[in-house]
């Protein structure tokens, strides 16, 4: 029964994504992107991944606030004009190539909604699940993976966030010339 709800959610997300691309209003497009994100969050809950669902929904809320805040302070919310022919051709070609590659790759994936470690007895995740509680003491296996077994990944993620904040604060400071003159 859960797979039935997931297909309904997938249909909802695909419709919202198409509306987000095709609508002329910027604010409507942003809200449709938010609908896609919330659908993904509920879908993660159905797929029994509550960690990802929590992260997805909180990031979606914050990102939606930032995007709406950026949208409503602009005067121009209409996008008009004919599409460029060259750009359309390039997009269609790239989508076709990705589609051809995706046919080959998606055949090797497990069925939708089933875990990948069920089909790979040699995978490293088998060790994490079997010995995670023993080796790290964390009852939440996701925490033991992202902060113990694969902590370098988290270090890289923290570095990316740190660099992004430095870039944002440097580029968007209020009075750059005045600050430089004071010093």
């Amino acid at each position: 029964m859960a797979i039935f709800y997931i297909y309904i959610l997938l249909l909802f997300m695909i419709i919202a994504a198409i509306i987000a691309v095709e609508t002329k209003y910027l604010l409507g497009a942003v809200i449709c992107i938010g609908a896609v994100g919330f659908g993904a969050s509920i879908m993660f809950l159905f797929l029994r991944a509550p960690d990802i669902a929590i992260t997805q929904i909180v990031v979606e809320v914050l990102g939606l606030i930032i995007l709406i805040r950026a949208c409503i302070s602009r005067e121009l919310t209409f996008i008009s004009g004919p599409r460029e022919f060259f750009g359309v051709v390039v997009s269609v070609v790239i989508i076709f190539v990705i589609f051809l590659a995706g046919i080959r790759v998606l055949e090797t994936l497990p069925d939708f909604g089933t875990a990948i470690f069920a089909e790979a007895p040699e995978a490293a995740s088998q060790t994490y699940i079997a010995e995670g509680l023993q080796k790290t003491g964390a009852a939440n296996i996701v925490a033991s993976v992202i902060l113990d077994f694969r902590a370098y990944d988290t270090l890289g993620e923290a570095t990316v966030l740190f660099t992004a904040i430095i870039g944002a604060t440097v580029i968007m400071r209020r009075k750059p010339k005045k600050l430089l003159e004071d010093e």
Binding site: D51, A53, I54, V58, G137, A139, N140, A143, S144, L147
Partner: peptide, 18 residues
């Protein structure tokens, strides 16, 4: 409670920020 229940540093941090 990130090491016992779903959640963790990233999700909790975003909630604090929000």
């Amino acid at each position: 409670f990130g090491h016992l229940t779903p959640g963790g540093g990233f999700a909790g941090g975003v909630i604090l920020a929000s």
